[in-house]
Amino acid sequence: MSLFEYAVLAGLFYGLYFALVGVGLNLIFGVMRIINLAHGDFLMLGAYGAFYIYHLLGWNPLWAIPIELVVFLGLGLPLYYLLVPRLQKSGDPEMLSFILFFGLSQVIEALAVFAFGNDQRSIPTSVFGGAPIHIAGQIYPSSWVVSAAVALIGIVLIYLYLYHTRAGRATRAIMTERSEAVVTGISVHRVSAVAFGIGIASAALAGIFSPFMFGAIEPSMGLGITVTSFVIIVIGSLGNPLGTVLGGILYGEALMLMQTFLTSWSEMFPYVLLILILLVKPSGLLGKAVRSA
């Protein structure tokens, strides 16, 4: 198996993980038309949760999954009612959300510095057994395979929620046309609050695996991750969670192929890809011709 094939499969693992990173941001945008610039900071909090579960309690970081899903879902609901309805009453909720959530991001980062310190932290990759996993004749870090598998499960669960539950159908109705959803009697705020909670919880879920995918975690990691998430969801299509999966995989493939063959340019290429896609298809790969915000 060649380096090319190695990079393609590595890109798939990396891409699935980044799809999970971005899916919550896109869900929140799709339902509420607000940009959660604190998305990466919720991921960072999830990462520290896993770090402390491992280092203080000595538990496998996988135990952080049920704990953090409950905690962050619970955090998302009151946060929604505190912030979002007020934003939506304003004349330009999209722009105002940029500012408000940027402020929230800075507050979370500052508090995290107080709480966790500035040092980089991580979790040894050996928690998943240590031995790398052989796939198609190549060797991949077990942490990557586990991260990608959990990401895939998370994305499938969000898909099942959106397409096979009553609340999910209501969520999609709001994403399609909010005013019509209100007329049909959908409790917009209740459904949106759940979507907001799911968005934040998915970020925290991704955060659990960030020590393995990013090498280490630190309080200031949030903003960079939010920007990457934004690139991914714009590539796929703003407001379309399925587009995020495609965007994530494209991002992962672009990054890994560039790291393999043009290492020095690897961090830039995904952004070149973003520009190209926006020039050719401004609404994103899975976007409609016109997006009504």
């Binding site: 380096l3 870090p141 990013f214 090498g215 890994m256 393999t260 290492t263 690897s266 961090e267």
Partner: peptide, 30 residues
């Protein structure tokens, strides 16, 4: 590699293809 590189898996495989006896990586602590 860019300063912000956080994943070295594919690069390590490229290095392995060159069959070095020693690998020196210079970067910041991240």
């Amino acid at each position: 590699v860019p300063d912000s590189t956080s994943s070295y898996s594919t690069i390590l495989h490229r290095i392995a293809e060159a069959k070095p006896e020693a690998v020196a990586e210079f970067g910041y602590s991240n």
